[in-house]
Simulated assay, not measured.
Amino acid sequence: MSRFFPHPLLSLALTAMWLLLTRFSLGNLLLGAAIALIAGWAMGALHPRRVRLRRWDLLAKLLCIVTWDILKSNATVAWAILTNGRGGKRRSGFVCIPLELRSINGLALLAIILTATPGTAWLEHDQDSGLLLLHVFDLRDGDDWSGLIRNRYEAPLLEIFG
């Protein structure tokens, strides 16, 4: 049974979502179930590695930091856009940040954090050297961004994922 339905909860949730997005009919039920079954097989073929978290307690603290930074960044970017013509001090650019973090899960979470924060975008990461290329909407000082990312996000992620 588990070979035919490798991820039954995922398949059930996808079928339910399909039926919520379309009108309920027997054809939509069969099509949604077929799509969900194929998605379950695809997930079964991926076999993701089990995530090992060393410090669960830091996840809540990191979530609070990220939430605050996203709210603050939204206001900052909105203000920069609204006052674009005044002073002409805004300058976007690229920053290279050396990272110590090597965990794939930690890097994925860092990418989500940086991309979800308005004003920054994760562009590239070199696994060999650990360099992260980050685009910043309002770049003032590259070293400031490097310290901010390393101290505020990378340090807790290093403790969480090891």
Rank of each mutant, 00 (worst) to 15 (best):
residue 2 S to E: 07
residue 3 R to T: 12
residue 5 F to D: 01
residue 6 P to V: 02
residue 8 P to H: 05
residue 9 L to Y: 15
residue 12 L to D: 08
residue 13 A to Y: 09
residue 15 T to W: 12
residue 17 M to F: 14
residue 18 W to I: 15
residue 18 W to E: 10
residue 18 W to T: 05
residue 19 L to C: 15
residue 19 L to A: 15
residue 21 L to I: 13
residue 22 T to C: 14
residue 23 R to W: 13
residue 25 S to L: 14
residue 25 S to I: 11
residue 28 N to M: 11
residue 28 N to A: 15
residue 30 L to T: 12
residue 30 L to A: 15
residue 32 G to F: 12
residue 33 A to W: 07
residue 35 I to V: 13
residue 36 A to R: 13
residue 36 A to S: 15
residue 36 A to F: 03
residue 37 L to D: 03
residue 38 I to V: 13
residue 38 I to W: 12
residue 39 A to M: 08
residue 40 G to Y: 04
residue 41 W to E: 04
residue 41 W to M: 05
residue 41 W to I: 04
residue 42 A to G: 08
residue 42 A to Y: 13
residue 43 M to N: 11
residue 44 G to D: 03
residue 44 G to V: 09
residue 45 A to D: 06
residue 45 A to K: 14
residue 45 A to E: 08
residue 47 H to F: 00
residue 50 R to E: 01
residue 51 V to W: 00
residue 52 R to H: 12
residue 52 R to L: 04
residue 53 L to E: 00
residue 54 R to N: 06
residue 56 W to E: 02
residue 57 D to W: 00
residue 57 D to I: 11
residue 59 L to C: 08
residue 61 K to A: 11
residue 62 L to I: 07
residue 63 L to Y: 11
residue 63 L to Q: 13
residue 64 C to S: 05
residue 64 C to I: 15
residue 67 T to C: 14
residue 68 W to R: 15
residue 69 D to E: 12
residue 69 D to N: 15
residue 69 D to G: 09
residue 69 D to F: 08
residue 70 I to Q: 10
residue 70 I to D: 00
residue 71 L to D: 01
residue 72 K to T: 11
residue 74 N to F: 05
residue 74 N to D: 02
residue 80 A to P: 01
residue 81 I to A: 15
residue 82 L to M: 15
residue 85 G to Q: 02
residue 86 R to G: 10
residue 87 G to R: 09
residue 90 R to H: 11
residue 90 R to T: 09
residue 91 R to F: 06
residue 93 G to Y: 06
residue 94 F to M: 08
residue 98 P to E: 13
residue 98 P to L: 04
residue 98 P to N: 06
residue 98 P to F: 02
residue 100 E to H: 10
residue 100 E to C: 11
residue 102 R to K: 14
residue 102 R to V: 11
residue 102 R to P: 00
residue 103 S to Q: 06
residue 103 S to A: 10
residue 104 I to F: 06
residue 104 I to W: 10
residue 104 I to T: 12
residue 105 N to D: 07
residue 106 G to H: 01
residue 107 L to R: 00
residue 107 L to T: 00
residue 107 L to S: 02
residue 108 A to I: 11
residue 109 L to D: 05
residue 109 L to T: 01
residue 112 I to Q: 12
residue 113 I to F: 04
residue 115 T to S: 15
residue 117 T to R: 11
residue 118 P to L: 05
residue 119 G to D: 05
residue 120 T to K: 03
residue 121 A to M: 10
residue 121 A to N: 09
residue 122 W to G: 09
residue 123 L to E: 13
residue 123 L to I: 09
residue 123 L to S: 07
residue 125 H to D: 05
residue 130 G to V: 04
residue 131 L to P: 03
residue 131 L to E: 13
residue 133 L to N: 07
residue 133 L to T: 06
residue 133 L to F: 01
residue 135 H to W: 09
residue 135 H to G: 06
residue 137 F to V: 02
residue 137 F to S: 04
residue 139 L to K: 11
residue 140 R to M: 01
residue 140 R to S: 07
residue 143 D to V: 08
residue 144 D to K: 10
residue 144 D to L: 05
residue 146 S to V: 08
residue 147 G to P: 00
residue 149 I to A: 00
residue 149 I to Y: 04
residue 150 R to T: 03
residue 153 Y to E: 03
residue 156 P to W: 05
residue 156 P to E: 06
residue 157 L to V: 01
residue 157 L to R: 01
residue 157 L to G: 01
residue 158 L to P: 02
residue 159 E to G: 05
residue 162 G to H: 02
residue 162 G to M: 01
